[in-house]
Design a protein around this nucleic acid. Structure first.
Lengths: 401, 401
DNA sequence: GTAATAAGTCAAGACATTTGACTTAATAAG
DNA sequence: CTTATTAAGTCAAATGTCTTGACTTATTAC
């Protein structure tokens, strides 16, 4: 009688879902391949020339694509290539880290147009969100000064911060950002900006950045091993970022390693935090980044000891990632100084044997990714752009929006 | 001029894709929720009553669903629930293991209607495929004897065998099935049966089985830790089996563990193969299964030593799986005897701390799955059924067949 | 100079979902 | 016991998007 158990089902789809998908497929194809003609698009997407023409016309009206000069490539009418218009859409990306927050404005193809950062006060989120909202407002205003009508084309705000999210008893570990985890950040940002807001962890953001403009561009299966203050993995599976059931997939910093009879989280062994501790450095020191870069380049002995130890852990992590995910490639990226990342890559080699050793590999097993303090903010901004324009299952269904 | 670099793009979709998806969504909803009325389906899938009516009518014509007696549940016209018709479709599942091969015939809802097994000769695949094709033919014939028109409703043959597939230099390791890896199995089975043939590793098959009729039923994020002759993980991510870029995702048996200054694959420490070695037992002994079950139940000391060691490795594996995938639950299954699996589950507890410890969990972190020698064959059969009837992204696109 | 080839358009057609009014069948209320 | 209300399900027309096949345009090959 009182059977109110909810019915679980996937959502159906209709014409609008079809059309939305096909639009996304066009945009994706142009992003991956550069400029393409309508005929090229028709062949690649298996849609008819007519359908492609209709959609391209619509995308051009919307300011998302534009035609280039016709190209003669043999017999037949010359083709008119279309390319993505960078100014077709923008997103704001926000990185919230322990001591600093960074915001960027990014366009449809991943150009960073505006960047700004600010120190985060020790007062926690209630103080911090003021700084953050000011920073975002500043970036937004600056973008509006560069591009007219930018507000109309702003698809959202992507935020990235260290995870994991919503885990019991994680409030007090100083390695995490306890107070921030409990704070209603999404709601505050939504209310404070009026934008669609998304949140992901920093490794996921780094992976999103690599997929839009980096080493994972056009790949469907790639894992980004992100070495920052903590360590995490950003998972690109089946062409989409994988989030897990609670948005915490890839948070391998908390993985316990057993050695010498005790267990230690990976994060305490191979992360900038562990390096700072090893060097007795103050994480809040603004010159630290440059200093670390210098130490790495100079081959400082204390630094080298840490690098050897961290490289061993990373080598094993990469082995495990290859074994578990069977990716096309693994990308090592981080907010660490470039000099350090390069030293790490050298120290990590040679890789352990794994199923990644296949006949006919084309991609390297391990590639360097972005080692740029701004890459997380860029990836954060890439989130809303991907949600708005990339093809994915959920975008076809009726309940997405 | 000679620019023949292929254009990479996702495929577009059209009305047929829409309709195919909606049909699959209906079937999925009925599978997860049991019988539902058209009105229920309309609400759950967000399609209109009319659309649902059309699709249900079509599915009924195709013999995939049927109506039950009308139910009065208050004011308003009584509703007519529809349910899946088990006899609506069949698939053959095939497990190829080291010393034995098993085949089953399964219906749309996962009932095993026919099962048969045969020993595999030592002669390798050229000998083995004869046995296998005979076995499949026998099961098919028996199915045809039970259900009329079964051949018309046979959607495919799913094969499962230990992986990994296509890895360089894996041909000679006696822990793997070297000769089989090099053999054109798919082609041989396709030619020998005339059916659509799919291939996956045994852990993936076990996960597929758990999703159709077991602990992962209706879950979108679950990992099955499969302890068989080897060890592997079957990954259900976003409601689909994840295969990786080469179908080897989850092949954690080859993951190297470092202890006592040397590295060992997980498979050599926690798998039936390692147990057989520990007990100096002959894997080809047909009574071994029962004997192991007995030893486990009796608390045999030698067995207990192995259990303690294996449980420690499994405990850590589960911790790692939780940390990496953030699943709703982890399912321990295997082709091991049930007594052994139960002992292992007890020995594994308590679990290590991880991000899976959340406020408001409803599912247990670790659940027992099927511990049935036939579960891999069942899962192998579930593969084609899932491909044919479950909603998934690829099924919408034009190039999926 | 003509045929072949390829890009792209036009207009009609096909197909699946949606819309809104309607029918049917039950319970609740007075 | 009658009537109002509620909910399931149907009917027929409308809508939106892709497809089809013929046609136009522009270029190169012979």
């Amino acid at each position: 009688m009182n059977d109110v158990r909810p019915i679980r089902a996937k959502s159906g789809t209709n014409h609008e879902g079809t059309s939305a998908h096909n639009r996304r497929v066009m945009i994706d194809a142009l992003r991956i391949n550069g400029a393409l003609s309508r005929a090229d698009l028709a062949r690649a997407t298996r849609l008819t020339k007519q359908t492609v023409s209709n959609i391209i016309e619509e995308l051009e009206r919307d300011g998302l694509v534009s035609s280039q000069e016709a190209v003669r490539k043999g017999r037949g009418q010359p083709s008119t290539p279309y390319r993505l218009v960078p100014e077709g859409a923008f997103a704001i990306g926000l990185q919230i880290d322990r001591h600093v927050t960074r915001a960027v404005a990014v366009d449809l193809v991943g150009n960073v147009l505006v960047r700004d950062e600010a120190g985060l006060p020790a007062g926690g989120p209630s103080e911090g969100t003021k700084v953050i909202l000011d920073l975002v407002a500043g970036v937004r205003a600056e973008l509006a000064g560069i591009v007219q009508q930018s507000e109309k084309r702003l698809v959202g705000l992507g935020a990235a911060m260290p995870g994991p999210f919503g885990v019991a008893g994680s409030g007090d570990d100083p390695w995490m950002m306890g107070a921030w985890q409990k704070f209603p950040l999404l709601e505050t940002l939504t209310a404070g900006t009026g934008l669609d807001v998304g949140l992901q962890n920093d490794a996921a953001a780094a992976a999103t950045a690599e997929r839009m403009v980096g080493a994972a561009h056009g790949l469907d299966h790639a894992v980004c091993l992100f070495v920052g203050y903590g360590i995490g993995a950003g998972l690109i599976l089946n062409g989409e970022l994988y989030r897990g059931s609670n948005g915490n997939a890839g948070e391998i910093g908390m993985a316990l390693l057993f050695a010498d009879g005790k267990s230690t989280p990976l994060e305490h062994r191979a992360s900038l935090a562990s390096l700072y501790q090893h060097l007795s450095a103050d994480p809040a020191d603004p010159d630290l980044h440059a200093r670390i870069d210098g130490l790495a380049l100079r081959g400082d002995p204390s630094m080298e000891a840490w690098i050897e130890a961290a490289a061993a852990d990373l080598r094993w992590s990469i082995h495990l990632i290859e074994t578990i995910f069977d990716p096309q490639t693994v990308i090592l990226c981080g907010s660490a100084p470039e000099g350090l990342v390069n030293r790490l890559i050298v120290a990590i080699g040679p890789l352990l044997p794994s199923i990644a050793e296949r006949r006919g590999r084309t991609l390297p097993r391990l590639q360097p990714g972005m080692a740029d303090p701004w890459s997380v903010a860029l990836g954060a901004a890439a989130g809303p752009i991907s949600r708005a324009f990339d093809p994915h299952f959920a975008a076809i269904l009726k309940d997405s929006r």
